[in-house]
Amino acid sequence: MKAVYSASNKDTNIKYKIIYMKTLLIKLLVTATLVTTLSCTKKNQTVTNSQTVTTNPTNNLIKIGEVFITGAKTKAIIYSTKQFEVGFNEVYISFIDSIDGSTINSGKLFLQALMNMGTMSHGCPVENSTDSASTNGYYKTAVVFSMPGTSSEWSLNINFQNKKNGLNGLGTIGVNVSNTTPSKVKNITLALDSNKKVIISILQPSNPKVGTNDFEITIHNKLTSVSFPPITNYSVEIVPEMPSMGHGSPNNINPIHTAKGHYLGKVNFTMTGLWYVHLNIYKNGSLISNDQYFEFTLQ
């Protein structure tokens, strides 16, 4: 049956078929490349580099208030990245010459934060700069507010040694400190470390996301009501947990001490939702605290 048709027919047939095949192949290849390139472009979206550090922080700063440093003929303007809240707050202060209105770039700052509770007062950890000159017109410091308070309770004492005119002075400004929920500060007493009073604050992740996040805490010792030296010799282990499921996350990097009581590591979140990051604190290899955790909600 199949071998019946004539030879002449066969030849023209084959020719036709070959031409047809060629055009089809070209058509298909073109479409195929189109499909592949199109789907490739879909994927190559620009990577949003959310972790870029702004080189000049002044753009993001908000003004908290200003106060005259009596004695130093200077006005201090206080800025921060956000309104003050319980926990770690960056504080940027710029000094203005009261006479000519110019920015003072040379001088030494000593900052103190005080909580006035009527009969008694206490401070909180402050990171003072040892610089004797400003950077871009600002002196960068930080305060770890340990509790909320109004501007009649919390105050910042700004001591300034004006190198321009050689005068010293002090200005005091009341500040509002709002509460944070969940709390960004833990005030604890470590029975296993000679009842040491310790303040732990969480800095990062400030905007937690699924994936890998920087994890940063500070640990300070409440030595007296006004002295809060950083603790630099603890080692910290972090254990993330989703409380509703009981699972953790892999490949976390335990924070290690960098400077000034700051401990830096990496925490991984595998999904959105509520996460606890538990802290196991060790001193000289022995566990001294395992009941503290910070809470994060990922949207």
């Binding site: 959105t272 939702g273 509520l274 909600t297």
Partner: peptide, 11 residues
Amino acid sequence: MYPFGQPTMYL
């Protein structure tokens, strides 16, 4: 996932 009284979890 919708845990009771907690934010939803997504992955």
